[in-house]
């Protein structure tokens, strides 16, 4: 039991962060607009959650310009993918008990 709790990741404690990770593990990348539309959150809210995940080095952030418009692309890192997998496995184990 102690082990399972250990694997539950604090960084994924919030449902929006969980949503961001879910989207990124099945997509090569997602831009800010796509995440915003899928999760139905405000700019500021999304930015704070992506920043938190970026700080943990779970996601990559790539800023560029399309014409004159700034475009931010997110993708999952190897570390993020592993952490997410462990987290989901831990939840599944908890639910089986």
């Amino acid at each position: 039991m102690k082990n399972i709790i250990h694997n539950i990741n604090k960084a994924f404690d919030h449902r929006i962060r969980l949503g961001i990770m879910s989207i990124l593990v099945v997509n090569e990348f997602a831009d800010f607009k796509m995440l915003k539309e899928l999760l139905g959150v405000t700019d500021g809210n999304l930015a704070s959650h992506t920043k938190a995940l970026e700080k943990e080095a779970y996601i990559n952030v790539e800023k560029s310009f399309i014409g004159r418009k700034p475009n931010t692309k997110y993708s999952v890192t190897k570390k993020g993918r592993d952490a997410f997998k462990k987290h989901v496995e831990a939840i599944e184990k908890l639910l089986k008990q």
């Binding site: 969980l18 949503g19 879910s22 099945v26 796509m34 899928l38 989901v88 908890l94």
Partner: peptide, 21 residues
């Protein structure tokens, strides 16, 4: 609690499907 985790799993599946299909 368990219910919250169940909701988490549902949200994960939902986001994976919605974003890729």
């Amino acid at each position: 609690n368990k219910e919250e985790y169940l909701k988490d799993i549902t949200e994960i599946k939902n986001m994976m499907n919605k974003s890729s299909r």
